[in-house]
């Protein structure tokens, strides 16, 4: 069993990670960190660079959590990557960060969070930044 966290190098991503770490401490499960990009634009600020990932792993080492960091770039959207990993690593919980969105913006853009909520076969914990 494991806990899956969708990580992005932003405030809400860090919030999700914080929460996932405390959940992992509680259940003593393995933490699987997913940071993915569709890779369709040359620049994607939601794709973590090496330095970021190193900081994350360093922190997890310090806290003594069994962990795995995945950064798939295969043209799939982030939601499918998270769901696929949840499947593969038999997730007991998925933790995601939520962005503030206006209802209209959400109507146009669709939502990664929504897709994960609807399609996941395990509980999903949605965390907001600064909460």
């Amino acid at each position: 069993m494991s806990i899956i966290v969708g990580y992005v190098p932003t405030a809400e991503g860090t919030a999700a990670l914080d929460r996932a770490i405390s959940e992992a401490h509680k259940s003593q499960s393995r933490l699987v960190i997913i940071n993915s990009s569709r890779g369709d634009a040359i620049v994607d600020k939601r794709y973590a660079q090496a330095q970021d990932i190193n900081e994350v792993t360093e922190r997890l080492e310090k806290e003594g959590i069994d962990h795995l960091v995945l950064q798939p770039v295969r043209g799939n959207d982030v939601a499918s990557e998270v769901l696929e990993a949840a499947d593969k690593y038999r997730a007991e919980l998925i933790v995601i960060g939520l962005r503030k969105r206006t209802p209209v913006g959400k109507l146009i853009m669709g939502s990664t969070a929504q897709q994960i909520l609807l399609e996941a076969s395990c509980p999903v914990l949605a965390v907001k930044a600064g909460a």
Binding site: A50, Q51, N54, T57, H67, V69, Q71
Partner: peptide
């Protein structure tokens, strides 16, 4: 460049070393 799918599980010491190396390479 960082490889497409990267699996990281390094100890703090190694992480620091890897960090230095990556910044340099970048």
């Amino acid at each position: 460049r960082p490889t497409a799918e990267r699996t990281t599980a390094v100890s703090p010491g190694q992480a620091a070393a890897a960090d230095g190396k990556t910044t340099d390479a970048n």
